[in-house]
């Protein structure tokens, strides 16, 4: 791992008797992108607020760039944050907004002014530098928020649900910017999100939180391998009226179980205690031999969504675009 920039040690936050975050420990290096995943109320935002000095921990400690949590001013110089549901002054222009924050970080007015242009270019807003923020779309505002989070060239950037409410193009744009931040600036990026696909695409490490505790921690591949205990399955779709004939044909293969999935034209084929994927191919061949036209046949693999559901006890409220959670 690269030089450690962020280290939490048994970080705990209690509100009364309830532990919002309970013994959070992890370390991250420069250039890492860490995904914080968990259902609502898992403690993601509380964890980020502690790590960004907005909340004092009940116990435990953390350091950012070697600065201990007991020096919040020092930490605030080294972090950039895009909070969840950040607001923006509608009448200020994007450049004025960044100049203002640059000055709050101690830059002279001229330097703060010079910094605004390149930062806006970095997030694709150079052409709108003089426009009032009130005229920006949500995606543009999020990108402006990211530019603001970079104004002090932070060692660690925290983003709380940065793509929430964005259209797919906006999401892709934001994720691409985050990838650049980690690669070009060598900054640690901590990303809290509901979107599992984002973590799969972007993060080289994932922390799944549930009830304030880390339930798993590792690379996406590691997390998947720990939870890949389900039998392999396939989904089969046939025209209406062919469902029953397809089910009988598939079930005729020993070791294969075939069941309707909602409609009588959609089937789920699963292996009945036999870990041999080729049986699914044999079942498909049997269906075709029975003269059933096959509309689609798709093998299922364990995804992060499955791991997420397996690891968290809560009902799933995560959003997995293009698939079932």
């Amino acid at each position: 791992m690269a030089a450690v920039t962020l280290e939490a040690d048994r970080l705990t936050k209690r509100f009364g008797t309830r532990a919002a975050v309970d013994g959070l420990s992890f370390a991250a290096g420069a250039g890492n992108i860490i995904g914080l995943l968990g259902p609502n109320g898992a403690g993601k935002t509380t964890a980020i607020r502690m790590l960004t000095t907005m909340l004092a921990p009940t116990s435990g400690s953390f350091t950012v760039g070697g600065v201990p949590h007991t020096d919040p001013d020092g930490i605030r110089h080294r972090i950039g944050v895009l909070p969840e549901s950040a607001g923006y002054p509608p009448r200020q222009s994007a450049a004025e907004y960044l100049r203002f924050f640059g000055r709050l970080y101690g830059l002279a007015p001229v330097d703060a002014g010079r910094l605004a242009g390149p930062l806006l270019a970095e997030v694709g807003l150079a052409s709108r530098a003089g426009s009032p923020i009130g005229t920006f779309s949500r995606g543009m505002r999020q990108r402006l928020g990211i530019a603001r989070a970079l104004i002090n060239d932070p060692a660690v950037v925290f983003l709380d649900e940065p793509t929430l409410g964005l259209d797919p193009a906006g999401q892709r744009q934001v994720l691409s910017i985050l990838r650049d931040i980690a690669a070009r600036r060598d900054a640690t990026v901590v990303l809290s999100t509901h979107l599992l696909s984002e973590v799969e695409q972007l993060c080289d490490r994932v922390l799944i939180l549930d009830h304030g505790r880390i339930v798993t921690d590792g690379s996406v591949a590691e997390v998947l391998s720990r939870t890949a205990a389900d039998p392999h399955r396939a989904r089969l779709t046939v025209p209406d009226g062919f469902g029953e004939r397809a089910r009988q044909a598939a079930a005729s293969v020993e070791g294969v179980q075939a069941e309707f999935s909602g409609r009588r034209s959609a089937l789920v084929l699963s292996l009945n205690g036999v870990a041999e994927d080729r049986l699914l191919d044999l079942a498909l061949a049997a269906v075709l031999d029975a003269g059933v036209p096959v509309l689609s046949f798709q093998r299922e693999q364990t995804r992060l969504a499955d791991a997420f559901l397996a690891l968290t006890s809560a009902l799933p409220d995560a959003v997995v675009p293009g698939g079932e959670p």
Binding site: R91, G130, S131, P132, G134, T135
Partner: peptide, 8 residues
Amino acid sequence: RNRARLRR
């Protein structure tokens, strides 16, 4: 002036 700015 503010309205003109917002329209730009």
